[in-house]
Computed example of a mutant assay.
Amino acid sequence: MSFLLEQLTVRHLAPGRAAAQAPAALHALDLAIAPGEQLALIGPSGAGKTTLLATLACAHRPAGGRFEVFGQDPWALSQGARHRLRARLFLAPQTPPLPPRQRVVTAVLAARLPHMSLWQAFASLLHPADPDAAHAALVRFGLGDKLYARVDRLSGGERQRCGLARLLLSSAEALLADEPISALDPALAQHTLAALQAEARSRNAALVCSLHQVDMARAHFPRLVGLRAGRIVFDAPREAVTDAMIAALYENDSVQPLPAQPHESPDRIAVGACF
């Protein structure tokens, strides 16, 4: 099992409050994700989607319950062992932390930093070690002409795809993406999701994406997990998720999701966070 959560609770620490008194961001979640499984997290803003992804990436320590990654409790490991475990995960945040004056080639190759020595990492800043690999990754996301551009010359959508190109150069066994298509037009969004899913299939990696576009989630992902107020409202195959369930998930939410479309099989891409 890539991830196993049982009665998992996560609290956001607040100034002046003890950990036990901090508000719960995730409440008693039960969730199991197998290698190669692909699922979408959907729900209104503030539902806990980003917190759940960060928890899966071992960035938030749970306040209670059981949490295992690849059969291990990351918070029972030594710091060094937990760092090695994190290297098997890739978290792509919605806004990738790309240094603005850095060249795209360097930003993409940063995916390999967890496996480099300090000297190798420093040398790569001056002379990118494998620009061909970076270019191939960028091509998959339609950014082949941006290899030596500066990050601050990219549009928001281009930065987002640049951050995702890092994923292709990682050796991660589980891929986590937070709103990976939020800054993309519909055609690019289709292309980007197809690239992510094809990569996950090629390495039999679990893929977990949070999405606000419900129609895209229903069209592309075989399993949907609906979150609201830090709780799982439903966890079901997409065929079992009805329009009424979606409406109830977003009930009274000020920002409604895009209307659901008929289910479609994901198109395969034509090949042309790490943290």
Rank of each mutant, 00 (worst) to 15 (best):
H191F: 10
D235G: 05
R238M: 03
V139R: 10
A81D: 14
T106W: 02
L168A: 02
K49E: 11
G156R: 00
D185E: 10
Q160L: 07
V151L: 05
L227P: 02
A198W: 09
L147F: 02
P35E: 11
D253E: 12
G48F: 04
M1R: 09
V214E: 04
L154E: 09
R66M: 06
L143A: 07
C58G: 06
G64V: 10
R88K: 07
L126H: 12
R88S: 06
L56A: 06
L26D: 01
G226S: 04
D253S: 15
M216T: 15
S202T: 13
P74R: 01
M245I: 10
S170P: 01
L39F: 03
A198T: 13
A194K: 02
A177D: 06
D30Q: 08
L249K: 06
H27T: 14
A63M: 08
S254I: 15
D145P: 09
P93K: 00
V208C: 02
R153Q: 15
D215Y: 01
R166M: 08
L125T: 15
R201T: 13
V10A: 02
A177Q: 03
P44G: 03
A136L: 08
Y250G: 06
H263S: 13
N252A: 15
P23I: 08
F90G: 07
T51A: 01
L118M: 12
P100D: 03
I42Y: 07
E68V: 07
F141N: 04
E199F: 13
G157T: 05
W119K: 12
G65F: 04
V214M: 07
A198S: 12
A240T: 14
C58F: 04
F67Q: 00
V10K: 00
L167S: 00
R228S: 08
E179V: 05
P266V: 09
R159W: 01
H127D: 13
F3C: 00
A183G: 04
T242C: 02
G144I: 09
R150N: 12
F141T: 09
G65A: 08
P131S: 01
G272S: 14
H135D: 14
T242S: 15
A206P: 05
P100H: 03
A240H: 13
A54K: 15
A260L: 12
G142I: 10
L227I: 10
L109E: 12
R84Y: 09
S170Y: 01
L4G: 10
A22K: 02
V108Y: 02
G230S: 09
P62C: 05
L77Q: 10
L113M: 14
S182M: 03
I232H: 00
A107E: 06
